[in-house]
């Protein structure tokens, strides 16, 4: 059984690509065969975050248009044997992606025995985002604790419930998960940032992960290594937990509490 997971959000720049790369990598680390697909046509990014940008010869659109086979376009990850990347095309027009074309590629990956297909969605609620979610079995809705991100993700929830293949066929709901990222427990403690509980309550979703705000994400992207591989980082540990929850484990949330402060910091504010 192949599971198709879309990583989506509505709003741009919230951490979808960071999340797609780390979740795909984490699943592969646990022995799953994983393909991660960049649906952001024209704004290819996933290859950079995965560190395979110089090995892109063919892309998603090439496969759909029959310029190459899927095998030729899948880039095998250097670190994980069972992880493959399908890059977005850089230049061609967005209409190159069609529902039939996407279906064909997904079917071929399914026939090939992949356990997971992770679809990294572009921002927005237009065609690209729609195609990325259309065939999904599950959705990771990436949210920042911030009003516009929460509102946009609620619109995405509306689309997941009505504009996906599952919804149209009445074939069971797309299973939705909330992944809250760029979370700062300190700012939540000061009442400056929406808390996990706030966002959970507003959106009514189960939480698959809370990822702290950290400079480790930038250094990982500089290096072209999914941040989940930086074992010393709390971000990596939080993504590990998210992967475990996706696979059905129940784990308590970590890194959501403020680190304990000393007496002076408490009295005079931090």
């Amino acid at each position: 059984m192949t599971e198709i997971i879309v990583v989506t959000s509505g709003k741009g720049g919230v951490g979808k690509t960071t999340t797609s790369a780390s979740i795909a990598c984490g699943l592969a680390q646990r022995g799953k065969r994983v393909a991660v697909i960049d649906f952001d046509i024209g704004l290819r990014n996933l290859d950079l975050i995965m560190g395979c940008e110089r090995r892109v010869v063919y892309d998603f659109v090439n496969v759909i248009q029959g310029d190459c086979t899927l095998k030729q376009a899948l880039i095998k990850d250097k670190r994980q044997e069972t992880l493959f990347v399908l890059a977005a095309s850089q230049t061609r027009d967005k209409d190159a992606l069609t529902p039939e074309g996407v279906r064909r590629v997904l079917d071929e990956l399914i026939a090939d025995g992949f356990d997971f297909i992770v679809c990294d969605s572009p921002a927005g609620i237009e065609k690209g985002a729609h195609l990325a979610m259309y065939y999904a079995d599950r959705a990771i809705v990436v949210v920042n604790p911030e009003v516009s991100s929460v509102r946009d993700s609620d619109r995405i929830l509306g689309l997941l419930a009505s504009k996906t293949h599952r919804a149209e066929q009445g074939n069971g709901d797309v299973q939705e998960h909330l992944l809250l990222t760029r979370y700062s427990p300190q700012r939540v403690g000061k009442g400056e940032m929406l808390s996990v509980e706030d966002v959970k309550e507003i959106l009514g979703l189960d939480v698959v992960g809370v990822i702290p705000e950290s400079v480790d994400v930038l250094s990982a992207s500089n290096a072209g290594t999914p941040v989940i591989l930086n074992e010393d980082s709390t971000v990596a540990q939080a993504y590990e937990d998210a992967v475990a929850r996706l696979l059905g484990e129940t784990l308590p949330l970590r890194f959501v509490e403020e680190p304990k402060k000393g007496f002076f910091a408490r009295v005079f504010g931090g």
Binding site: V147, D154, R155, L194, D198, F268
Partner: peptide, 30 residues
Amino acid sequence: MGLLALFRRTPPSASVAKERLRIIVAQERS
């Protein structure tokens, strides 16, 4: 929260955000 924060009059901005979101999300969902 520091001592000074106890004297702050305005509600913390996160609770304002939450209240606004609660209303707009309910409205858009309906």
